[in-house]
């Protein structure tokens, strides 16, 4: 039996609003249902428990916004990309809406191997009464980079975030009075990726050492959402792309 002709549709979608609290598996599950609701001719795997041939880009931490999440969907029939996109949009909850869809070679590398670059934007405001400047933040981030890594807790396990390998570049901009925007340009692969909230935890500790010397520092662990020296309005994954194809 010859392999039937298959088509790989690559889709970019967002994760925003309340739906940013969904876990990776919950999103994956939801998108499979979207595809079935959209009535697209999806391919299924062979074997004991056949399932839809769909693959996702790297997991996004729960609570993080994204403008650039991706999935590859294998179809058994060609559906013009604009039509496929329209059908997906109609079947998707608005906070996960797909924005673009295009066919790629059926043998194209998996998204997790292809998308080695992730750019994050962090919107933050300094805590009341603290006169933190963009230069302070830049300085603190530079010192974290010099250390090379950050230790943190995940449950009871101690983990290391390799900053030297995952953080390619960063910049800090002053947005409004006391408000800043940090941009992180990061590298991700099978060996690890940036966890912005851990980096922010380390940044907070660094700033607190200077501005709040009397306050005891909280333990650095996954899932942290509140900081001493600033509040974070949003962490947004604004881009995921292939480093080798950088303009």
């Amino acid at each position: 039996m010859t392999e039937p002709t298959l088509f790989k549709l690559r889709v970019r979608y967002v994760k925003r609003g309340r739906l940013r609290y969904l876990g990776h598996l919950e999103v994956a599950h939801t998108i499979e249902r979207v595809v079935r609701r959209a009535g697209l001719p999806y391919a299924v795997t062979q074997g004991f428990s056949p399932h839809m041939r769909v693959a996702f880009s790297a997991a996004l931490p729960v609570g993080t916004y994204s403008e650039s999440e991706w999935y590859d969907l294998v179809l058994t029939e060609y559906v013009p990309a604009p039509e496929a996109l329209a059908r997906l949009v109609a079947a998707t909850p608005t906070d996960l809406v797909p924005l673009e869809a295009a066919y790629v070679d059926i043998r194209a590398k998996a998204l997790t191997a292809h998308l080695t670059r992730a750019v994050y934007r962090i919107d933050m405001t300094s805590a009341e009464g603290l006169a933190i400047s963009p230069a302070d933040i830049e300085d603190a981030l530079a010192r974290i980079c010099d250390r090379g890594s950050i230790e943190y807790l995940r449950g009871k396990k101690t983990k290391r975030l390799d900053v030297a390998r995952t953080l390619t570049a960063f910049s800090v901009e002053h947005a409004a009075s006391g408000a800043f925007q940090i941009t992180l340009d990061t590298h991700q692969d099978n060996d690890g990726s940036m966890r912005p909230e851990i980096l922010l935890g380390a940044l907070d500790a660094m700033l607190a050492a200077r501005y709040l010397p009397d306050v005891e520092l909280p333990v650095l662990e996954t899932g942290i959402a509140s900081f001493l020296c600033f509040s974070v309005a949003a962490i947004v994954r604004v881009e995921q792309s292939c480093e080798d194809e950088r303009a």
Binding site: G17, L19, Y21, G63, P93, G223, A225
Partner: peptide, 19 residues
């Protein structure tokens, strides 16, 4: 309840906006 979501297991229990 939004600020509490990061502190509890399975936040998707509380967010609604389902299909």
């Amino acid at each position: 309840i939004e600020p509490l979501l990061n502190r509890v297991e399975k936040p998707s229990r509380y967010i609604d906006h389902e299909w």
